[in-house]
């Protein structure tokens, strides 16, 4: 036997009063909401929407800071895909992202797991790993320029201890991009470690204890408890890493300027060169649009992978 509770029917007058109250209340809330949103919307409009629209419009022109310009339709885009420097830059950037992101995420997670233990000198290690992140990239790059110096650098000095011949690192087309990737991985560890560390401290102790009681070993606990709990954080780190690696510029600018040849030329450096050295702002704008699309594709793939992982 079941019973059903029904609300007493409201009179027509009462219904109107409730609606009126709701309406008045909603309007106030809406106004307050818009008022609170206004600064952020204004900021987004002025500094994001308008510039993005301007870049889209400029990408359809041949504007080059001169007195005259004309519409070129999708001419810049079709020229881009015949431009060997752009294609090389795109390839180097994608390669840089594909290699740097997973390696830096894996190392960061491993270090964070280590720093999550109760070990001596924990504060020192946490600070040491975070220092590269707060150091200016120009300073970091300058130090690494010395490390990679073929004549007197630390890298060749260290390798010579084991009888290896000196390498020309940044001057060798075969090792230049890889050498930059090492610096990029090292510099990006700090932020990822901090994020992972915070997430690790939020992993449920109850679940870990339950796994202990069930006889799970360390790997099983990591694979089946810790890693799933880090899912949202992994996604956040992935997204920020994609954006960060696609925008790599300062490191390349200071260390190689894209050389030797165009072996370390990356997208943002190519955009910078086209916009501010060659004064082809329309062309550089088209390149920026392509970069935004590529980043969006990478983020989309990241989301799909994340969903697949969650469904598992």
């Amino acid at each position: 036997m079941s019973t059903t509770l029904e609300r007493p029917a409201l009179s027509a007058t009462r219904k109107a009063d409730v609606a009126k109250d709701k309406g008045t209340l909603t309007r106030n809330q809406v106004r307050t909401g818009w008022a609170l949103l206004a600064p952020a919307l204004l900021h987004s409009g002025v500094f994001i929407v308008i510039p993005v629209v301007a870049v889209l419009v400029l990408s359809l022109t041949d504007y080059s800071f001169g007195d005259t310009w004309s519409w070129v339709g999708f001419g810049n885009y079709s020229e881009l895909f015949r431009d060997v420097d752009f294609l090389a830059s795109l390839w180097h950037t994608v390669l840089y992202a594909i290699i740097v992101i997973p390696i830096s995420m894996a190392i960061s997670l491993a270090v964070a797991l280590g720093l999550n233990q109760k070990i001596r000198g924990l504060g020192f290690f946490r600070t040491a790993f975070y220092i590269p992140t707060v150091t200016a990239t120009v300073a970091v790059a300058t130090i690494w320029l010395w490390i990679y110096n073929p004549g007197s650098g630390l890298a060749n000095g260290f390798l010579s201890l084991f009888g290896f011949a000196p390498n020309r690192w940044l001057a060798d087309p075969g090792t230049a991009l890889g050498s930059l990737m090492v610096v990029g991985i090292w510099q990006g560890l700090g932020t990822k470690i901090i994020i992972y560390l915070a997430a690790l401290q939020g992993v449920s102790r109850d679940l870990l204890e339950s796994a202990d009681i069930d006889g799970a070993n360390r790997w099983q606990k990591f694979r089946n408890v810790t890693l799933p709990a880090l899912g949202p954080v992994q996604f956040f780190v992935l997204i920020t890493s994609i954006v960060g690696t696609f925008q790599v510029f300062d490191l390349v600018y200071v260390m190689t300027r894209g050389g030797p040849g165009s072996e370390t030329r990356v997208l943002v450096l190519d955009i910078y060169q086209n916009a501010f050295q060659d004064l082809k702002l329309g062309y550089a704008s088209a390149e920026t649009v392509i970069m935004m699309i590529v980043i969006a594709v990478f983020i989309g793939v990241g989301r799909l992978l994340q969903k697949a992982d969650t469904n598992d």
Binding site: F47, P51, V52, A54, V55, L58, T137, V138, Q247, V248, F249, D250, L251, Y253, V268, I271, Y272, A275, F276, L281, A284, S285, T288
Partner: peptide, 13 residues
Amino acid sequence: MRRSVGLTLLAAA
């Protein structure tokens, strides 16, 4: 610096 390039380009636009 890398972000500043993107921002500078956007600002220039």
